[in-house]
Structure formats: structure tokens, C-alpha cells
Nucleic acid binder design. Sequence first.
DNA 1: GTATCATATGCGCATACATGCAACCATTAA
DNA 2: TTAATGGTTGCATGTATGCGCATATGATAC
Lengths: 139, 139
Amino acid sequence: MQPLKGRLMDKHTTAFKALSDKTRLRIAYLLSSSKTELCVCEIVDSLEIPQYNVSRHLKIMKKAGLASEVKAGKWVRYGIKSEGAFRGALLAALLALPAAIFREELRELKKRFSIRIKGKCLLGIQKKYLVGKKDERRK
Amino acid sequence: MQPLKGRLMDKHTTAFKALSDKTRLRIAYLLSSSKTELCVCEIVDSLEIPQYNVSRHLKIMKKAGLASEVKAGKWVRYGIKSEGAFRGALLAALLALPAAIFREELRELKKRFSIRIKGKCLLGIQKKYLVGKKDERRK
DNA sequence: GTATCATATGCGCATACATGCAACCATTAA
DNA sequence: TTAATGGTTGCATGTATGCGCATATGATAC
């Protein structure tokens, strides 16, 4: 009705919208089931999604207040934001989904974790066909 | 990745999607803060949204498993579905939103309730310009 | 400096979605 | 049976959204 009210409402639909996409749901699930923050390349390798898309979806989640960003040199790590009753319940809903749906994602992430050095990701994208370059799948 | 998995995932993004629209968020809030089911016309009058749109959004919410439908003669009443951990948390998130956002909606609903007869809605849409007919606003 | 690597973003396209309008269905009242 | 009423649905349209591609940014390595 009123412009201000409209804006307030949109602010909150945004959070639901952030989880209303399959790719973002998978990313959010990885982030919220991991104890440490994840860098972009780890998400790319775990979900097998082009890097530019992971980047984009993370940006949307960040804007929605669901993801946090920490830059460290070339690397950018993302975490899940869960403070507050609203976000807490929202993530509770996410984690209440049948775990079987995300089994493969979690397994790939676990594999990817084994490449970490001293708990840090230092290697970059392993599945090279997912980087933002021209098709290298044929090589 | 696999078709089956895709379908499973979509099923759950649908629930978030159902709350990711401003109009549906308002409808869901009314339904979940009301102890009784609401008939379409009560929602129409409370939110001042064309009746055909309320109908459509309710259909979407129903498909998402968030709303229940009870037909009674000409009237159709809708309620919120909250069973299960997932839907429970989802609605907890909804109700964790700052109540101030929905103040007017709740006030209008309360007004609308006063027209009920023996706890039932028997009068139909009061704000006639919201029905699905040609413009009667000028009358 | 240049090259390389991790990440981000602008563009164009195809699809999905919310809306207004008109018509339609289903039930009750006359 | 006909009219009126509560509710639903098809169609056209404008807008939002996700994607692939190419390119850009920004930091490190050489």
C-alpha cells in the first residue's frame, strides 16, 4: 500500500526468495552444514556449477542477509548468517529438509575438504570445466 | 543432477517460493495468525487485493503444501498447514517477522471478523471494487 | 612490468511469474 | 429456470530471473 511499507515487505520476501532457487538452496545447505566458511571454488567443485553462477547466487544471498563474506587475498570465503529469530527459523527450515536430498553435495564437499591445507583452501577450482572460460571440456 | 533429485529439490524450493512474494506473504501471515480458517472474501477485504488474485495466490500456496482448502457451499475457507519440522520452521520464520509490518492487515482482518455470524463468514466481499468484474469504482 | 589465478560482472536471451481483464464454474436464492 | 453470488481460470502483457558467454577486477607470482 504505502511505499515505505512496500519496501519493508520486500526486504523480507527477499530472504525467502534467496532460498527459492534450487542452486541457492544447495549452496545454503552446504554453507549451513559446514562449521567453517567455504570459499567459492569449494562450492563450485562440490556442486559442479559454473563459477560465475556460484558467484552470482552468493551475491544474491548476501544481499538477502543470509550469507557473509570474508576476503582473504585472492580468496573469498562465504558463511551463513543465522542471527536473529527470523533467520534462525529460516535456516532451521532449511536444515529440516530431508538430508538425503543433499547427500551427494555433502559427500563432494567432504572430498573437497581433504584438499585443504591447515584448514584453508589454497588450491582453486579442481574441475576446470567449471571456470568462466571457453569450453575446455574437450581437452 | 539426476531428474528425480531435481524434482525432489524443486518440491522444496516451491515452499520457499510460496513465501517469496509480497502478496502471498501477507496472505500467509493472515492465515497463520488467525485461529480459524479464512474465506477468500475475508482475505480480499483485509488486504484490498482483487479477488481473482487472492484466489490465484491461494492456489499456489496450496500447491506448495502451505495452505489447506475447505469448501462449504459457495464459500471456500483456507487455513495454514504447519505440520512437520520443515513447515513448522518455515512458519516460525514468517511469524518471527516484525509484527509492525502486518499491523494494518491484522487490523482490517479484525474489523472483517466483526461481520461474521456465529463465527462464519456469510456476507461476501464488502469492498465491491475488488471483485472480478468490470470497474465499479466509479459508482 | 607481465602472467596467472580466484572471483566478479555486463550483455543477450529464454523462461518464469504477477497482473488486469474477461469469461467461466458452482451453489444458492427467487 | 433464471438470476445472483462466491470463487476460479484462460489469455495477453510487462517485468523479473537464471543462464551462458565473454570480459573485467584484484591480488599474487614470476
